[in-house]
């Protein structure tokens, strides 16, 4: 029996020590998340953007100072550049030269973003296939209804064909973020129209910027078109008399009076309590002196 117990203990200790050893040997590498995106702005400039992050304590944290390699083409890839990620874990490459855009057999541009990894972080790779698209936005007034007409054409086998079935989202920039004002679903002619809301305030002259976007489109990536015109309501902001706001220089008089009266009342009573304490102290001192005098006599 004793032998059995000893053997069991030996087995358990060997097993557990092995487990501890194997655990200490394995120092798991960080598995990064790689997000690879294509952007084309209003001026027809295109960029490739890679965001490298990792997860720690339920938080997504950036991997900064990491070398990201950008490639174009499929099969034999052409190295475009190596960019170091910034403090947000972002590396951006501006696509400029014709050699940056190498189309495959289907007329798509294959791009690759690669992080080689290091001693503590695993490598990561992401690929994109982008088709060039031309997004147009026309702003017209039809029967006094302000209308946004969007159209898109893509290149297929050297020809320009309309984009159908895709959605273009429309925004208006506001103080803190973009306000969505509608979605345009492109028909077979590659166009669609959306009525512009009449009640949106613009700047002092009524200027307002309208943005049309393909967002995270599987074929076109992120493509943007924007235009500014006087479709907004002029917002000449003037402070009405007696207006109250947190940023006004002084508080309303009634508030100052109320607070002053309240605080004086409260602190007045505190003063009474403090004076009472002083009176107790003085009284005690007086009594002590009287006692001393009586003792001397």
């Amino acid at each position: 029996m004793k032998r059995k117990i000893a053997l069991t203990l030996l087995f358990l200790s060997l097993f557990s020590s092995k487990a501890v050893f194997s655990y200490s040997q394995k120092n798991p590498k960080i598995s990064p998340y790689i997000q690879f995106q294509y952007f084309k702005n209003n001026e027809e400039n295109s960029i490739l953007k890679t965001t490298l992050t990792y997860s720690k304590n339920r938080m997504e944290l950036p991997l900064t100072g990491m070398k990201i390699a950008f490639f174009s083409g499929s099969g034999e890839k052409t190295r475009l550049a190596e960019i170091i990620t910034d403090d947000k874990g972002v590396a951006i490459y501006n696509l400029k030269h014709d050699s940056d855009f190498i189309a495959d057999n289907n007329g798509l541009w294959p791009f690759t973003s690669k992080f080689g990894g290091n001693d503590t972080i695993e490598s990561a790779i992401s690929e994109l296939l982008i088709r060039d698209v031309t997004l147009n936005m026309t702003l017209t007034e039809m029967d006094s209804i302000k209308t946004i007409v969007v159209g898109a054409k893509k290149k297929e086998k050297g020809k320009e064909v309309p984009v159908s079935g895709e959605t273009v989202t429309l925004y208006v920039p506001r103080m803190f973020s973009l306000l969505p004002i509608g979605e345009a679903k492109l028909d077979e002619t590659g166009s669609s129209s959306v009525e512009f809301p009449a009640s949106l305030p613009g700047d002092k002259q009524g200027n307002i910027t309208i943005i049309a976007r393909f967002e995270e489109n599987a074929e076109f990536g992120n493509v943007e078109k924007k235009s500014t015109l006087k479709w907004g309501l002029p917002s000449a902001y003037s402070v009405p008399p007696g207006h109250r706001a947190l940023w006004t220089k002084t508080a309303p008089r009634w508030m100052i009076y109320t607070l002053s009266i309240l605080l004086s009342g409260v602190w007045g009573h505190y003063l009474f309590a403090i004076i009472s304490l002083i009176r107790i102290r003085i009284n005690a001192k007086k009594k002590k002196v009287e006692k001393k005098e009586l003792f001397i006599k």
Partner: peptide
């Protein structure tokens, strides 16, 4: 505070 418990 030297409190002695007099009535006052």
């Amino acid at each position: 505070l030297g409190f002695t418990g007099t009535e006052k």
